[in-house]
Design a protein around this nucleic acid. Sequence first.
DNA 1: ATACCAAATGAATGGGTATTCATTCATTGA
DNA 2: TCAATGAATGAATACCCATTCATTTGGTAT
Lengths: 211, 211
Amino acid sequence: MSETLKKPRTRRRTAPREERQDQLIKATIRSIAKNGLSVTTIATVAGEAGLSQGIINLHFQSKERLLEETLSYIVDEYRSAWYKAMRTSGDSAAEKLAALAAVDFDKRICQRNKLAVWFAFWGESRSRLTYRKICAESSREYKQLLTGLCEDIIKQGNYRVQAHHVATGLLAMNGGLWLDILISPAEMSAEQAREISLSYLRGVFPRHFPG
Amino acid sequence: MSETLKKPRTRRRTAPREERQDQLIKATIRSIAKNGLSVTTIATVAGEAGLSQGIINLHFQSKERLLEETLSYIVDEYRSAWYKAMRTSGDSAAEKLAALAAVDFDKRICQRNKLAVWFAFWGESRSRLTYRKICAESSREYKQLLTGLCEDIIKQGNYRVQAHHVATGLLAMNGGLWLDILISPAEMSAEQAREISLSYLRGVFPRHFPG
DNA sequence: ATACCAAATGAATGGGTATTCATTCATTGA
DNA sequence: TCAATGAATGAATACCCATTCATTTGGTAT
């Protein structure tokens, strides 16, 4: 007995709950990217995951909850990424701001499949309170963080701009660049987008972000 | 005879083709804003227009074509707006650029219902070639126009930025601000957005857009 | 081995949607 | 006033989709 940690020889057909849910969420991301949210059905997701239709209600109770969990997954992943960037970046406000801006174009975050999910949900969010709620707190927190960093830099450099304007503008610009990457990947790569975003910061805070 | 242009006394139940199509497109915009694209059905559009279900296939052959015509309507309206801005604005590149940037936050263009439509279609556009095509030419043309104006200003002012970066950045920022207006109208008005967008231009071209 | 349990399946169900088309109705010209 | 025309209707149709659940299957403890 007590060989509980033995590895299975054959690929297990039954997976632990969390693993299967993760698998389904990733299948949902692919389906939304490939088919769009309005054509994403239980069947397309199950097909993408290579599993049966019934499994979605087994794990998520409803299609709607699967979609909500998928959005949460993306939002949480994004939040974790900038939390980490804050921890690992340099101490100065400028370094932190640069690190945050870079997260938006990080390989892990700035994947077209995931961008497709962001925009799919934004497209529906006007009419769906739930979707807005899932994004709300994280986005509020993020903007506050950005604004704080901008305030510091403005004080240090004696710049004559409003922190709130810069933070909101930067956030908006990066979102818009995401759309370019999503829709016209031939004309806009993540690297170019990062460069454009940075050139904005150089323009507003020239002494902190020298060209 | 020859009184063909007489006005009808009673409200006509049968309207000219173009008028009815316009009415249906406007109903579609309202339905997308209210319900989202994925819940917009023949029934919701017909209900919004106060007409019967059959009328949509009568005028547009299919729901899909109605949606495409609706997107085209929004795109064309936007294009007309900046064409007009170019005609009526001052002659200097800076004036023209300011006029263009202002169009994005013009009352006619920057309505939440219409913004909802833009984002609804962007959300699906990754998976729908047709949607991308409808936007493509207009958007290309617009970016080219912006870039040209930036080039002029850069030459005049001897600025050390790339025209393409500024044009793309401005376009992206305005798109991102649209999202703020759409999703958090309490925190972002069209006027504030215009101000933020302008403060970007002031930052990049300080001698042409004095604060 | 055997029995048990939970995971997974997929056919069946019920509700909803786009599209069609025979019918109704408003308008116009004679 | 009376056809003739075509716009508009809405019930009928055929299809699709989320959800359910009886059944099967894989893993585990005995």
